[in-house]
Design a protein around this nucleic acid. Sequence first.
DNA 1: TAGATTGTTAATCGATTAACAATC
DNA 2: TAGATTGTTAATCGATTAACAATC
Lengths: 207, 207
Amino acid sequence: MIEIPKPTLGRLPLYYRALVAANEGGIEILSSAELGENAGVDSAQVRKDLTYFGQFGRPGVGYNVVNLLAELERILGLKNPNEAVLIGAGRLGMAICNYPGFSRYGLKIVAMFDVDPAKIGEKLDGLEVFSLEKLERIVGKLGSQIGIITTPAPSAQQVANKLVAAGVRAIWNFAPVNLKVPPSIILRNEDLAVGLATLSHYLSGKK
Amino acid sequence: MIEIPKPTLGRLPLYYRALVAANEGGIEILSSAELGENAGVDSAQVRKDLTYFGQFGRPGVGYNVVNLLAELERILGLKNPNEAVLIGAGRLGMAICNYPGFSRYGLKIVAMFDVDPAKIGEKLDGLEVFSLEKLERIVGKLGSQIGIITTPAPSAQQVANKLVAAGVRAIWNFAPVNLKVPPSIILRNEDLAVGLATLSHYLSGKK
DNA sequence: TAGATTGTTAATCGATTAACAATC
DNA sequence: TAGATTGTTAATCGATTAACAATC
């Protein structure tokens, strides 16, 4: 099995989005150049990325929008969304819960946890907030595979430990901290400071 | 002038964070191995990254924490924060406004904009929310360099156009859409679907 | 001096881009 | 058939990793 480059994986949602838009616009065929244009990616890159998964186009014609949409849905696993729990029902946590069409992108948040007594037992956006103490039990019962950490940085490592103990396979960390987890755990950090550093470097450079 | 690799820029905040923690812990010297351990980066990578900006260590000894902290503050421009306006005072917008110690990372949000009449004129976290119609005038007056877009996807392009017209130099886009902006504009997309795609790929793979 | 660790060069690895034969 | 566009190989580019002389 050939390894998929990480950047390729990151571009698939961009293609998916461009295809959804094209489909809604009634467009039936898209060339790699057109698809790339709408996704912000070079046409050669588009073709190369897609060939990691199969041959979806017709030479001299292009890609069938509906067909390629279906392929990407399959590749991205959008039909069988992953179930996740979210820890930290603050603003960021709620924002993520409400990320537009998150379910559409293959994620379903099934429970929220917090330490704030004022939030525990409440329903936020139709989702009950549980005490952090119940994390291990509930994750075990639900069999959730993903834990999303949106707590303040100082609590994040402790929460990560609980998630690992509870048996999640992946952690999506939004707290600005370097988490230590066993190598078997899939860890993805979403770090705003990283984006900001890039931005401000270019700002200071191109005077 | 040597071009700084983008991945290097993204790792600087990780080093900065590790150094802050070390400094608070009273640690005065850190080797590249120790710094890398705390930042989640290989030691050779740490040394290589730092040499793009200068020579900050002492062979046989390591890096002086306070000294390197000061250098990184300078490199990241944390002493002269960039001023930004934020458009879209929803949950995500508010979450970003409250990102822990954002000011510490060199960003100061100076005004918020929204189209919701219920929000316009209100003060959210001490920041007044203005009508989107006033965007161009206020950005011009304040001379803001960065526009942060946290609107729903369908409005994002229109907001980006207004920001460009108003004269911002950089756009930090959180809406899941491919924005078209002139090449002179620095554009950074923060896209949750990208992270999710990566996570779910690995989840489905390592059965 | 002996031991440790930097800064830097060279080797490796991985991703992007260019080019084009095959195909519609 | 002539024109267009894919899939794929080869060339280029850029980043990471390894190795080690210089330095403390």
